[in-house]
Design a protein around this nucleic acid. Structure first.
Length: 304
DNA sequence: AAAATTCTCAACCGCTCCACG
DNA sequence: GCGTGGAGCGGTTGAGAATTT
């Protein structure tokens, strides 16, 4: 006995493209009664659609604040940079592009930008053939790009800067564990749980059968990581974020991504973010993280 | 001009998260 | 603590439009 699906293929429900009449009914109803209670809207409004379909139609097409027209150059640049940092978190990306919907951005990425990115990556790989060869010695397919996940959940290895004590994760009881600087080293996760030499912390535990099938990376800011701050509502936690401390606080977790591509070792991963040469590493690090910090702290639209 | 192919994007589907009883 | 239902998210599909052959 499973749960009744939201949009079961009930008889009499319209499917496919919405008609102008259906649009008008939905618009009038929401103008009169407001958004929400999507499940009850079709019945109340007299629409032969499921609630989910109504919600989607409203959010992606009928909402009055939807911006029509082509994605501008600035928007495109913003999408690319946000995607670099956030991955396929379309709703999060859309939240920073007023008037654009997650669906629209997702479509734009899948049809336009991903192809462009592939070409760019191909060129970049050729350009850095020797660099890749070196990485191949330690990684099977080093073509992954760094993506910040809202929650640092899984990893196979963690590179920890030796400069100071760093938070690396929470255990099942939600207790944050840190690695003392003396223990800073490349940690290899061979089991679901792993302890440091003095047994003082639990490595990010994974309940996945195959912990190496996914990856995440996270960046510490004192007691909280960016991803945690991102996942929480309180972005003021980021106020202490000091770019000057970046090199001493960054935590890299690297393994393989969803496609089975291996992530690069920390230095090269960051290089690949910017697509620039080693000598510009620090500047680009500042630039990308400055952008991220601005993104996280901004309540206004970002301008570039 | 017609057929074939490619592209675009609205809509659907299945899943997870979260609030609530 | 557990089950249920609503909302939201990201991946995928497919119809129609645009382009190429």
């Amino acid at each position: 006995m499973g749960r009744k699906p939201c949009c079961s293929k009930e008889e009499g429900l319209n499917r496919g493209a919405w008609t102008a009449i259906e649009d008008k009914i939905l618009i009038d109803f929401i103008k009169a009664h407001g958004e929400g209670k999507w499940r009850s809207i079709p019945k109340a409004a007299g629409l032969k659609r499921c609630g989910k379909s109504c919600r989607l139609r409203w959010l992606n097409y009928l909402r009055p604040d939807i911006k029509r027209g082509n994605i501008t150059r600035d928007e495109e640049d913003l999408i690319i940079r946000l995607h670099k940092l956030l991955g396929n978190r379309w709703s999060l990306i859309a939240g920073r592009l007023p008037g654009r919907t997650d669906n629209e951005i997702k479509n734009y990425w899948n049809t336009v930008l991903s192809k462009r990115a592939q070409v760019k990556e191909f060129n970049h790989i050729n350009k850095n053939e020797e660099k890749q060869r070196i990485i191949n010695c330690s990684r099977k397919a080093p073509t992954g790009s760094g993506v910040i996940h809202a929650k640092a959940e899984r990893c196979t290895e963690v590179f920890i800067s030796p400069k100071q004590q760093i938070m690396i994760g929470k255990d099942d009881n939600d207790i944050v564990h840190t690695v003392p600087s003396t223990d800073a080293k490349l940690v290899h996760e061979t089991a679901v749980e792993s302890e440091s030499r003095d047994g003082s912390f639990t490595l990010l535990s994974s309940k996945e059968e195959n912990p190496s099938s996914k990856f995440s990376m996270d960046f510490g800011i004192g007691e909280i990581s960016i991803s945690e701050a991102l996942a929480s509502d309180d972005l003021t936690q980021l106020s202490d974020f000091d770019l000057c401390d970046m090199n001493s606080t960054v935590i890299y977790e690297y393994g393989t991504n969803d496609c089975g591509q291996a992530l690069l070792p920390p230095q090269l991963m960051v290089e690949n973010w910017s697509g620039n040469d080693c000598v510009e590493l620090e500047a680009n690090l500042d630039s990308d993280f400055g952008f991220l910090a601005a993104f996280l702290e901004s309540t206004e639209d970002l301008t570039f």
